[in-house]
């Protein structure tokens, strides 16, 4: 018996270590871990609660009925308002204080070219022009109303 004593001491050290490990684990691992799978279930709600910046198409219509009606009849009907005007949730919250993006007149040709510049890579039926040849100098909206272009 005396000859095994040192092994018993080793076993005691291991037992204490394992107990400490389990105790620390119980304290450190969050409670929701493992509830839905091998992950922290609370993370799902945390991700759902992240801030939203784009309001979504439906938000614009109630206040901007004219533009909405205009757009719905033309080729830009497939486009959401925020596609050109940028995120508008803050504008929806404080309409007078915060205004969404609107390209300056000098930048309009560049702005519209981002989609409409001719490129072989674009679908052939998609309306495209060569910006440097097409009515140079004139802002696009002079002939093409943005909400209902021809």
């Amino acid at each position: 018996m005396k000859d095994f004593q040192h092994l018993l001491h080793v076993a005691a050290v291991f037992t204490v270590a394992i107990a400490a490990f389990l105790a620390i684990r119980h304290i450190v691992v969050p409670a929701s871990f493992g509830r839905l799978g091998h992950y922290r279930a609370d993370a799902v709600d945390e991700i759902k609660a992240l801030p939203v910046l784009y309001a979504g198409e439906r938000s614009c219509a109630p206040c901007h009925q004219e533009q909405t009606k205009d757009k719905s009849a033309g080729p830009h009907r497939t486009m959401a308002c925020e596609s050109c005007h940028g995120p508008a949730l803050t504008h929806e919250a404080k309409p007078k204080a915060v205004h969404p993006f609107r390209p300056k007149e000098a930048d309009i040709r560049t702005f519209c070219s981002a989609c409409h510049e001719r490129s072989l890579s674009r679908p052939r039926k998609f309306p495209q022009i060569e910006e440097r040849k097409h009515q140079t100098g004139a802002p696009c909206i002079m002939c093409h109303p943005p909400h209902r272009p021809k």
Binding site: D3, F4, H6, L7
Partner: peptide, 19 residues
């Protein structure tokens, strides 16, 4: 490091060896 045990009898050492 002895973990409080100073027994190095033949038998204990042979246990160590086998283990």
């Amino acid at each position: 490091m002895t973990l409080g045990v100073s027994n190095i009898s033949e038998r204990s050492l042979s246990i160590d060896d086998k283990l």
